[in-house]
Design a protein around this nucleic acid. Structure first.
Lengths: 234, 234
DNA sequence: CGCTATCTTGACTTTATTCAAGGCTTGTGG
DNA sequence: CCACAAGCCTTGAATAAAGTCAAGATAGCG
């Protein structure tokens, strides 16, 4: 995937989706404020008025749907280049929490809405991206509905490898990064996939014993057999 | 929920989300063509260029994510007042198929995009609605990840009752309709909830034996105890 | 070096699926 | 109008999958 990310505002440009012109990007970067979040810090809180929109520059965040009984489900992840926020909405629908230390380019919502009004292309792009996110979430829904625990874990690892490899690509590394650190704990992976910690761990071990991955240290992942991983995800 | 639906173009206006003015609605209605679909007919095919956008006027449709092995998952439902289509996109991401006989107000995509360009308010409204759909899909994801078979079935019935009651409200019926016909077969409910036909049937029977619902005929549902149904869904 | 949190592994239980049979509805043709 | 056939729904018994409970291992940190 051909992508290039604006260092200043974190906007990821996808070749296939069309791009903002440089002037608009520069303007956006000026409007935003860089902000650092530590692991566990909350950017947006469900139910609050959505004060800010933001682009992720580095790190990872989780979108959390918290139920009353504390059994929280992770309904989405945000990696560098991703946008988060609900322009024109009066309520934030989900919590957004940093999984690791992260940097974002944050815009006050009113400022961002103003920018959307001034740049039609940007509003179209945001609609496109939101429709894309919707399609991706539906695909995840389909996967979660039918897939076995093994498929879910393998699919998650394949997806993480792909997305973190893209992030590495920005930093000039090999596009096919086969080694990375997970930004999530086993428990968080369980929340994401609708599985228990134990089941996630067992499936990870299965993949390791099958020679498909290695598990160095606590969070480390080495993909030994990318094709095998994709096959296990199917 | 306060809603009112434009008969001509199928746009559902939500009081909380702001409304289009009547002139814009009238203009939209002129641009659209009414189309009837029989049960099983396909409106949009995944992978094709998205030729049309549409508002649902009556009936119900399913958004289907088809896997290679024919094990298709239903990732969303469309009821009267819902919008379907991907303006500015170059590919349709999922199949959209009529569950029952349905009528829609169909717009050629280019015409719809033109209308969006002419009416900023409409584009904002579409973005709002898409963000709302995204939030709803994420909630469904959270539910599907953790909930038991019983909760899923009860939740589906509660949701169907609510949405079909809204549709009935348009026709001047009681807002609290407690009796309706499901637009889906047991198999389709299974596809939607990630369960087998047998499990769906068993859970329906459980709800019937608990006195929460009645099951007259093949597709009929009578909600005897709405509170109990919501409790079972939790 | 020991402490704590996280991860792994094992034994058992619960839950949903699979396989199989039978019943209800609906539509069609005699 | 009734009989029959086809599809859909329900129910039961056996199997497989993931969850729960419990104990031990590993890693990271003061």
């Amino acid at each position: 995937m051909l992508t290039r990310t604006c260092e200043a505002c974190g906007v990821r440009e996808r070749a296939l989706c069309g791009v903002l012109d440089d002037a608009a990007l520069a303007e956006l970067a000026v409007l935003g404020v860089q902000r650092r979040l530590g692991r566990g810090e909350t950017l947006l809180h469900a139910g609050d008025p959505p004060l800010v929109c933001a682009n992720v520059q580095s790190g990872a965040l989780k979108i959390v749907s918290l139920s009353s009984d504390g059994d929280d489900a992770i309904v989405g992840l945000l990696y560098p280049g991703d946008f988060v926020g609900s322009p024109y909405a009066d309520r934030t629908t989900h919590d957004v929490v940093a999984l690791s230390d992260a940097t974002l380019c944050v815009f006050p919502r009113s400022v961002f809405e103003r920018a959307l009004a001034d740049h039609r292309r940007m509003e179209q792009l945001l609609l496109q991206r939101t429709l894309g996110d919707l399609a991706a979430t539906r695909d995840r829904l389909a996967a979660l509905a039918r897939a076995s625990a093994g498929s879910r874990v393998a699919g998650f690892l394949a997806d993480a490898a792909r997305r973190l490899a893209v992030a590495g690509c920005q930093r000039g590394l090999e596009p096919e990064t086969t080694s990375f650190d997970l930004p999530l704990s086993r428990g968080e992976i369980g929340d994401l996939l609708g599985l228990t910690i134990e089941t996630v761990s067992r499936q990870m071990t299965r993949l390791r014993l099958a020679g498909i991955i290695d598990l160095p240290g606590g969070r480390g992942i080495v993909v030994r057999d990318a094709a095998g991983l994709l096959a296990a995800a199917a």
